[in-house]
């Protein structure tokens, strides 16, 4: 395990988490103060918890096992807890095997999907602010909300489509592709892809080459 110092777990950006995975790390561990015992007055560890739970949903969507991301709350004298927690996390990661391989994913495609998710971070911040912020800082409430049907619906409505679009954009950056080819590569339904392509054409992000019968970036 390699450690990076931040002054507050609330400083751990979604970008950092996704970047670490995109770089090929097998696991990411976030350590923060015990909930309710913030070193500052901001209680940023709750934000870290929210970010972690959201990142886990994104990883799941990409096909990466969410167990590869863990957050542990502890105080400065919890040395034993830290050691136990890291040992058990290391064990989990060893059992899961190398990133992507353990999940049986196409590594190139997984990286592309992680890159695509990274590009979504500014948008995800807006979603978090507008729709995912909880009035009460309680671990139980956070975990309940992020596991709820309401959250699932929000995620499907607000994030899943954006993730797919970002992935398509990255694919098209490599080479022009047809709707069918995109659908195959990303394991999506052709109808879904054609829907996304219509929206993207309208926004002027992609263009259709009728001769090649393929989309390319506009």
């Amino acid at each position: 395990m390699r450690l990076i110092r931040v002054m507050c777990s609330g400083r751990v950006d979604l970008e950092f988490i996704l970047r670490a995975f995109a770089n090929g790390q097998d696991g990411v561990f976030i350590g923060g103060c015990r909930l309710g015992e913030c070193n500052y007055v901001t209680h940023g560890n709750f934000d870290a918890l929210g970010n972690t739970l959201l990142a886990k949903m994104i990883l799941t969507q990409i096909g990466v096992n969410p167990e590869r991301l863990r957050i542990q709350f502890m105080n400065a004298s919890d040395g034993i807890l830290l050691a136990e927690s890291i040992n058990s996390f290391a064990k989990t990661i060893r059992e899961l095997g190398p990133l992507g391989k353990g999940e049986g994913l196409d590594i190139g495609l997984m990286r592309l999907k992680l890159e695509a998710a990274k590009k979504l971070v500014p948008y995800l911040r807006l979603v978090e602010r507008e729709r995912l912020r909880l009035p009460e800082k309680s671990e139980e409430k956070y975990r309940k909300f992020y596991g709820s049907g309401e959250m699932r619906t929000l995620f499907d409505q607000l994030i899943v489509e954006k993730l797919a679009m970002a992935q398509i954009m990255l694919l098209l950056k490599e080479s022009p592709l047809s709707t069918g080819e995109i659908a195959e590569k990303l394991s999506l339904k052709p109808s879904e892809v054609s829907n996304y392509m219509n929206v993207s054409s309208m926004h002027g992000l992609v263009a259709y080459d009728s001769a090649e019968k393929r989309f390319h970036l506009a």
Binding site: R2, L3, I4, Q25, D26, G27
Partner: peptide, 15 residues
């Protein structure tokens, strides 16, 4: 991010 990028992969990263 420079530290994240300089970390050896694959492995486990803690923040």
């Amino acid at each position: 991010e420079s530290q994240i990028d300089a970390a050896p992969g694959p492995g486990v990263l803690a923040l």
